[in-house]
Simulated scan of single mutants.
Amino acid sequence: MDKYLISFDRGAMDHIPAEDFPQVGEDAHAVCREAKTAGVLIFTGGIHYDTDDETLAANPAVVDTNGLITDGPYPESKELIGGVFVVEVATREEALHWAAKVAAACRCPQDVRKFMYDAEV
């Protein structure tokens, strides 16, 4: 069995009207429940960005090899991940199947990437 990261960029859901978000949430939760029942869901969640937090405590930070911490990348970047859905499935086709379900629920395209296998971890 292989693990796959299914994700979308921050801002990918910006086209959705605010009044549609409750239904999007319900649809996304339904896919999560289905994946749990199927035994394939490892983890899922949206990434929290707090543009009102002056300390940037909830926002990304870059930690360099020497331990230097730099706040950023900043929330304006569309390259940041907006949400993740990690599944463990037998084939790439199964991962794409779940990505299609997530895409329909979240109303945005999904990126699908296979994790490298490492017996040590």
Rank of each mutant, 00 (worst) to 15 (best):
A105V: 06
T44F: 02
A90P: 09
I16M: 08
I81M: 05
E88Y: 05
T70S: 15
M13W: 05
T44K: 04
L80G: 02
A28P: 03
Y74W: 15
A119M: 09
M116S: 14
V24L: 13
I42Q: 04
D118K: 11
D14M: 11
L41R: 07
A104F: 03
A35T: 00
Q23A: 15
V62Y: 03
A58K: 10
I81A: 04
P17T: 13
L80K: 08
A103C: 05
E26D: 13
I42V: 15
C108D: 09
I42R: 01
V102I: 13
D52A: 11
R10W: 05
A18W: 15
P17V: 10
V102C: 10
D71R: 08
F21K: 10
R33G: 09
R113V: 14
H97P: 02
P109Y: 06
V84T: 05
I69G: 06
E76N: 10
D52H: 06
T51C: 06
E88K: 09
I6P: 00
F85R: 02
E94W: 03
K114F: 10
G83Y: 07
A61Q: 13
E19M: 10
A35H: 07
V112T: 02
E94A: 09
G83L: 00
D71W: 11
I47N: 06
T65P: 08
R10N: 03
A38G: 04
H48E: 06
R107V: 11
I6M: 00
L80I: 05
H48Y: 05
L80V: 05
A12N: 04
D53Y: 05
F43N: 12
R107W: 08
M13E: 12
G67K: 07
V40M: 02
D111R: 14
T44H: 07
L96C: 12
M1T: 14
M116T: 14
V102A: 06
K114I: 10
C32R: 09
A100Q: 03
G25F: 15
T70I: 14
M1P: 12
V87K: 02
P60G: 06
M1G: 13
A28M: 11
H48M: 09
G46D: 01
A57C: 12
P73S: 02
A95E: 00
A99F: 04
E120Y: 14
G39A: 06
K36W: 09
D2V: 06
D14Q: 11
A103N: 01
